[in-house]
Design a protein around this nucleic acid. Structure first.
Length: 584
RNA sequence: GCGCCCGUAGCUCAGCUGGAUAGAGUGUCGGCCUCCGAAGCCGAAGGUCGUGGGUUCGAAUCCCGCCGGGCGCGCCA
């Protein structure tokens, strides 16, 4: 237990005493907030408690601070208390308390920094969930990195985390894709045909078609003339043209249409899974949208809303009265042609998630979906759940630049930079780190030239370098046959009195709190910023003090401190899904 | 027009939910290797926190109005 964790209790007992003595009035409910001091002159920790209280009680803050500090019980780790500025209470830790962290880190090992804050509560993080209509592009990458990192961090603070990918395997886009595959197949079989402009143009469609042609020969072949006869012309209505083409395919192919559909879906989904896995992103569940229909979940969700009186009919369609729950307009769930809307699936999906017992359901969404949040909250309330259970993390777009030009991305045109390509160019580590370096609300300018040509400017290398450097020193120590003794090191930590050592110790002391903050606020960038500071604290130390000195107790103490720093870096990088190399 | 997000050093961004002298990286300039990895360290210069009001002991942070940028506002998925 560090001093910081004990201070709130000490302050509380001081408040209780002042209350009992009648110095403070009843009914005050101050939040006790202890922070690490930025300026060493302000001690190790500080609280603004007196300032906050002075406002509520209408007292002079400095006088109040004096009263609090004199009511404070003594504590072995607390050396001195000072009142400063307008009424801050500054705490100076005993020397002993500052070294404690090193032993804690080494004892905790790879588990150091983990906690039980989440109390094993079930939380689901659903992320990426891109339409399986082509390879993931760099826009999906940010959601992938965010979702995965948030999952890791929540797990680290004791939540029971489930990672899920929602597969949009129903609907028109999949039909367009399956039809695209079939048309390419026909071309490979020797048919000449006008490939529609709004069908999927990407090379991967050719690949799937080629596999299909290899496996099935001409079994799925129909003449181009048969296929294109009597269709609404593409020139007048593209959408009607492709819809008619889909229908034609289903009629001509019968059960074989499903084969093409499935083969296309499986191929692309397998590719996405493989891609994400190489990105260090793995899921517990791949949830099929279609299964909501086949399991009857969709009907049940609709029925439930109907029973609760939240549905009504108008213009032949069925509407959800979401305005009753704060949405700006009501939403159609069943179209006048009898088909369920995509939103109906979303409703069934929410119900399904809640039924699976998640206390927190986190959606990681792209900025283009932010308009859907109110209606999803409305659904939660209409289903009798607490809308706070659904949390939406809106991740702003990552805009790619190459040669100073903004790149356009469109899956259908086939011209996009894939996540796979990005991994190849900058590496999975750099991409993972880069993506979560900023708050998700912040737009991300991703300059490919910078990321590829000058990759040593990436702050991730700075952190990895610090880790590798410590490993190198330890190797060097062995090579020189200098014996390292951890026990001796721990016993002589009081020899670490250099300014850089104190600074490094203070930085290490912050780690557990940073992980907690990052989890509480769902902000991975807290961690990347911290790790940069930690790496800087170590590099500064390394440049200022020699670790491998002849004096054994000092050497052991310094190497022990370095090992603690290495452990924290490794643990932090692990949460980010970034490797901690022993040499570079 | 309405809604959400963003505006902080030349550039890219932090700023611990209202606290002490607003901080990093990068770029510019100047120092540091006979010694554990110079992919490093240290120092300097660089700010009317978009703007105008308000709230109070105290505002980059909270409230309101403008200005500028991004993204949404379908019986699409």
């Amino acid at each position: 237990m560090s001093l910081k964790n004990e201070l709130p209790a000490l302050l509380q007992s001081a408040l209780d005493k002042l209350l009992a003595d009648g110095v403070l009035p009843e009914g005050l409910n101050p939040r006790i907030d202890v922070t690490q001091s930025r300026d060493p002159g302000h001690g190790d920790f500080a609280t603004n408690l007196a300032l906050a209280l002075a406002k509520q009680a209408g007292r002079d803050p400095r006088e109040l601070a004096r009263q609090i500090s004199s009511a404070l019980p003594a504590h072995a780790l607390l050396e001195k208390v000072e009142i400063a500025g307008p009424g801050f209470i500054n705490f100076f830790a005993a020397q002993d308390a500052r070294f404690r962290i090193v032993g804690e880190i080494l004892a905790g090992g790879e588990h150091y920094g983990r906690s039980t804050l989440g109390e094993r509560r079930k939380v689901q993080v659903e992320f990426v969930s891109a339409n399986p209509t082509g390879p993931l592009h760099v826009g999906h990458g940010r959601g992938a990195a965010y979702g995965a990192t948030i999952g890791n961090i929540l797990e680290a603070v004791g939540y029971d985390v489930q990672r899920e990918y929602y597969v949009n395997d129903a609907g028109r886009q999949m039909d367009i894709l399956a039809t695209s595959t079939w048309l390419r197949y026909l071309e490979l079989a020797g048919e000449e045909l006008p490939f529609p402009r709004n069908a999927y143009q990407g090379d991967y469609v050719w690949d799937i078609a080629a596999t299909l042609h290899r496996e099935r020969g001409d079994a799925l072949r129909h003449s181009a003339q048969t296929v294109f006869t009597d269709l609404p012309p593409e020139s007048s209505d593209q959408e009607a043209h492709i819809d008619a083409l889909i229908l034609r395919g289903k009629q001509l192919l019968g059960a074989d249409y499903e084969v093409i559909h499935k083969q296309t879906l499986d191929t692309i989904l397998g590719d996405i899974r493989d891609d994400l896995s190489h990105f260090g992103v793995d899921y517990d569940v791949w949830f099929s949208e279609r299964s909501l229909t086949t399991s009857g979940g969709l009907e049940r969700a609709i029925a439930q809303l109907r029973e609760r009186g939240h549905l009504y009919e108008r213009d032949g369609a069925t509407w959800f009265r979401s305005t009753e729950f704060g949405d700006e307009k009501d939403r159609v769930v069943i179209r006048d042609n009898g088909q369920a809307t995509y939103f109906a699936s979303d409703i069934a999906y929410v119900l399904n998630k809640l039924e699976r017992g998640f206390e927190r359901v986190i959606y990681v969404w792209g900025a283009d979906h932010h308009g859907y949040v109110p209606r999803m909250k409305a659904v939660a309330r209409a289903l009798g759940a607490d809308p706070e259970q659904l949390e939406f993390l809106i991740v702003q777009f990552a805009v790619l630049y190459r040669h100073g030009d903004r790149l356009q991305m469109s899956t259908r045109s086939g011209e996009f930079v894939t996540l796979r390509q990005l991994r190849k160019d900058v590496g999975a580590d750099a991409a993972r780190f880069f993506y979560v370096m900023r708050r998700c609300e912040q737009h991300l300018d991703f300059d490919l030239d910078l990321a590829t040509a000058h990759k040593n400017e990436n702050p991730m290398f700075y952190i990895q370098y610090a880790h590798a450097r410590i490993c190198s020193v330890l190797r060097e120590c062995e090579q020189k046959s200098l014996h390292y003794d951890e026990e001796d090191g721990l016993a002589h930590l009081e020899l670490l009195v250099a300014e850089q050592e104190t600074a490094l110790l203070r930085t290490l002391d912050r780690y557990a709190g940073v992980v907690e903050t990052a989890a509480l606020r769902l902000e991975p960038h807290q961690l990347t910023n911290y790790l940069r500071e930690l790496a800087n604290a170590f590099h500064t130390y390394y440049n200022g003090q020699r670790l491998l000195v002849d004096d054994a107790p000092i050497r052991n103490a310094r190497l022990t401190l370095a090992r603690a720093a290495r452990q924290v870096m490794a643990n932090g990088l692990q949460l980010l899904g970034v490797s901690a190399p022993e040499s570079m």
